[in-house]
Nucleic acid binder design. Structure first.
Length: 817
RNA sequence: GGGGGAGUGGUGGAAUGGCAGACACAGCAGACUCAAAAUCUGCCGGGUGCACAACCCGUGAGGGUUCAAGUCCCUCCUCCCCCA
């Protein structure tokens, strides 16, 4: 057949239309074949896909197509993380309802996804701002409220004055808002919380059950975030009033070395000890920490003028207030043991507070406090500690905690760094929290039958003042469900991380009107076999998703304890060495690239430029290399395609070379899919194959060529679905969808090299290469190697100490020099 | 300060104790062409050699283990990420 020009635009648009006309094309069948749930993190509908999306979805799509070809029943859904502040900010700016903006963005991005050839089952599309979806957020909230997992309390919250909203701690970066970079201030408000801490232990221990399928660094980050520390609590006593000051410490064995008690600035006792003018520096301290974030502040403190009594030694030590003590961690008060904690050491030496060593190294003496340059933080032997002197730290910790408990002034205790999840947002574009405030009855849940609590439409978006929901009279005013008296609705909406904590379950049963999903259908698909997304979600989204799964399990809704068996985190797409961003003006628009090179080339380039887990550089020049490759394959197959298959088996030398490379390549790509997803090397292998095929082309038999073109087309299908489909249908004259064909099996006989190429080294340096039949005996190999003319001069006249022979692999002759 | 990555040609990267630099980009030379584009072919880490051959050096620095180290171990430097 004559060679055809690779007209990417025409053939891609043709198949794009054809695929769109078949809504069942990528349908998950639920037909009893082994299942594979392939999931990419759903996007926020910001308006347009960016290259990060293209990379993420190209990885997932390539995998999904491969799994289809391997005969799996693949579930490959997508949806929209559609609530959130940008829609509302856009509404303020353009006087356009957030819903309008959001749905327009979704329509646009959906078309972009289709144009990229992503194999999504659109019948399962989920959009979190649909009442059909957020109704179930509310339902989960009520269930959690019933069992005490959702509660309301006054909280010091991070307030962004520009966004006029509360931010989660993790949304504060270096004291600034993660979105708009405004300086964050502290406010106290009643807020709704999910009790994540109730699951802290399990969230931690289960990181070990999913270890083999999740990246180590994600699990490490989560473990650090959970921050379990086992220690003890002990009550110091305010000397003047006898009031107890409870401290948490991981090193109760050092308590005889405590030389002061330090309170967090927000500790309730502080406000009582430091009244009037004395409180001013404390206020200053609180604001300062809020401004700079707990990271970069210099340690500073204020003496309260009061003392406290050590419950073990009876000693009176000063009470200080320190800016580095966090109210939210432990008890908000610490005992400072400068001799054995580096942070305490820095604080105490700064303020002239004594340093008193009470732990010595097992094989050394107690340090001289005057000579100490830094704290001794290791375990050792306890000294100068009353009845505990002479014990090891390990023994003393246990015994002292027990004695504290017996004496009623403390106990062994575990604390976690992770805090309960504050979900309240003073915003419009989110899920309304289904609660009603009644003067008589207090806080009353909305009855389940009244769900969903819908967002009202008659709202002005000014960007000023309190939540827009508070302005809607229709929304705000309701009769109390308990007593019928006039009451008003909660106007806070939920953090959007609630939406994304369970969306992957809804994909199993997306239009269920009676329940969030049917448990049986979820059981069929869960856990997710492969979850793919950015490492930026390593902590929050993934920990909240794991929390939700455990809550759902305890509600009897799902059987699994973890949402995803395997997680893959892809690297970022860079341009000019840094992440693409509008502010840097280095954004590459996928649409432009698709027009220029086609979707196949774009997808393949995101896979070729670097291994998927690493950051990749978008290079306009390099992508041309991939375009050339796709185009070469296309022309090669089109000019060599034959509609009449020829009988084979009697291969000429060119056939053998071509088929050998073909089957070697197939084996390599299959390996890459099964093991490590280094698609950059898969694509490189196909490029090598093309180089070999071009060299053998003119001498190959029709039968060999028929095999080569067909297998090549199948191998290409997961990576470049448009070109592969076009060649499969039009040029090879086959029927059906190429991604539904069985993945070809590499023929080991055809793939085998004719002989083993064995490098010969002398003292580890390459001197010659032999080609010998496979399985040549060790002795024979050694003999041939020694006889090799290129080797002889290096061995001649020298004493051979040793010869290492690895059959079919290598010979190393070691001589005395 | 703690934890985790990474460091290989002009560039992106390959090599899971066994031939360093696959594949590609850029560059150089050639074929085709009136010419250009496209396409195809060859060369392409550094050094010594007229050239060929041959040899030497070379994976951030230094040490170690091993017949053999980009790969494993120790010390150090630089960069990135996460947590303080």
């Amino acid at each position: 057949m004559p060679e055809k020009t690779y007209d990417h635009a025409a053939l891609e648009l043709k198949w794009c239309e054809a695929w769109k006309a078949d809504p069942e094309l990528y349908k998950a069948r639920e037909d009893g074949r082994p299942k594979f749930y392939c999931l990419e993190m759903f996007p926020y509908p910001s308006g347009k896909l960016h290259m990060g999306h293209v990379r993420n979805y190209s990885i997932g799509d390539t995998l999904a197509r491969y799994m289809w070809m391997r005969g799996y029943d693949v579930l490959h859904p997508i949806g929209w993380d559609a609530f959130g502040m940008p829609a509302e900010n856009a509404a303020i700016k353009n006087r356009r309802h957030p819903a309008e903006w959001t749905y327009a963005n979704i329509a646009f991005m959906k078309a972009q996804m289709d144009r990229m050839g992503f194999s999504y089952d659109w019948a399962r599309e989920v959009t979190t701002c649909d009442a059909d979806y957020y109704k179930w957020n509310q339902w989960f909230f009520l269930k959690m409220y019933e069992c005490g997992l959702a509660y309301r309390k006054d909280a010091d919250v991070n307030w962004c004055p520009d966004c006029a909203t509360v931010l989660a701690n993790e949304q504060v970066e270096e004291g600034r808002c993660w979105r708009c970079s405004s300086v964050v201030v502290i406010r106290t408000l009643p807020e709704w919380f999910f009790k994540v801490t109730q699951y802290a232990d399990e969230l931690l221990s289960d990181t070990y059950t999913i270890e083999k399928g999740w990246p180590e660094r994600v699990l490490t980050m989560q473990r650090n975030w959970i921050g379990k520390s086992e220690g003890a609590e002990a009550d110091f006593t305010h000397s003047a009033t006898g009031e107890k000051i409870r401290v948490f410490t991981t090193r109760i064995d050092t308590i005889y070395g405590a030389t002061c008690v330090i309170l967090a600035p927000q500790h309730p006792l502080v406000a009582r000890l430091m009244t009037g003018d004395a409180y001013a520096p404390i206020k200053e301290m609180i604001d300062d920490v809020a401004r700079k974030g707990p990271g970069d502040i210099e340690k500073a403190g204020v003496f309260t003028g009061h003392t406290a009594t050590n419950p073990f030694s009876g000693e009176q030590i000063p009470i200080w207030v320190g800016n580095f003590v966090l109210m939210g961690y432990g008890t908000g008060a610490i005992m400072a043991v400068p001799a054995h904690d580096q942070r305490d050491f820095e604080f105490c030496t700064r303020y002239g507070i004594p340093v008193r060593p009470v732990i010595r190294p097992v094989d050394g003496a107690l340090a001289d406090p005057a000579a100490m340059k830094e704290a001794f933080g290791d375990y050792g032997v306890v000294e100068n500690s009353g009845p505990y002197s002479g014990l090891t730290s390990e023994v003393a910790r246990v015994r002292m905690a027990a004695d504290a408990q017996a004496g009623g002034f403390g106990n062994a205790s575990t604390t976690f760094r992770i805090k309960d999840w504050g979900i309240s947002r003073q915003r419009y574009w989110g899920t309304p929290i289904p609660m009603i405030h009644c003067e008589q009855c207090g806080v009353v849940p909305v009855p389940e039958r009244d769900l969903p609590v819908r967002l009202p439409l008659d709202v002005e978006f000014t960007g000023k003042g309190e939540s827009p929901l508070a302005q809607s009279a229709d929304f705000l005013n309701v009769p109390c469900p308990a007593c019928g008296a006039p009451a008003h609705r909660e106007t806070d909406t939920m953090d959007t991380f609630v939406d994304s904590s369970w969306y992957f379950y809804r994909f199993c049963d997306p239009s269920n009107a009676d329940a969030p999903f049917d448990s049986g259908r979820v059981a069929r698909w869960f856990p997710i076999d492969q979850y793919i997304g950015g490492v930026t979600h390593a902590i929050l989204h993934l920990i909240y998703s794991r929390f939700f799964t455990k809550v759902m399990r305890d509600l009897g809704l799902v059987a699994n304890s973890e949402p995803a068996a395997n997680l893959f985190t892809q690297g970022m797409v860079l341009k000019g060495g840094t992440a693409m961003s509008k502010s840097k003006g280095n954004v590459v628009d996928p649409d432009e690239m698709v027009v220029k090179f086609g979707a196949d080339t774009c997808r393949m380039f995101t896979l070729f430029a670097a291994p998927p887990e690493r950051d990749m550089e978008w290079d306009e020049k390099s992508i041309e290399g991939v375009y050339r490759f796709v185009s070469r394959v296309y022309r090669f197959v089109s000019r060599n395609a034959s509609l009449t298959p020829a009988p084979g088996g009697d291969w000429n030398p060119a056939d053998r070379k071509a088929l050998r490379k073909l089957h070697q390549t197939l084996a390599k790509i299959t390996q890459d899919f099964e093991n490590r997803w280094h698609f950059n090397t898969s694509i490189a292998a196909m490029m090598e194959l093309m180089n070999e095929l071009t060299a053998q082309e003119s001498a190959m038999s029709p039968a060999a060529m028929a095999q080569v073109t067909s297998v090549l087309c199948l191998m290409l299908a997961p990576f470049a679905p448009f070109a592969a489909q076009e060649l499969w249908t039009t040029d090879l004259g086959r029927t059906g969808h190429v991604f539904q064909q069985p993945w070809p099996v590499s023929d080991a006989d055809l793939a085998r090299e004719e002989g083993a190429e064995v490098p010969v080294q002398v003292n580890g340096k390459l001197r010659a290469k032999l080609v010998v039949p496979f399985g040549t005996a060790k002795e024979e190999l050694e003999r041939i190697a020694k006889a090799e003319p290129r080797v002889r001069p290096w061995v001649k006249g020298k004493e051979v100490v040793k010869v290492v022979v690895i059959p079919d692999k290598l010979v190393n002759i070691v001589v005395k020099t």
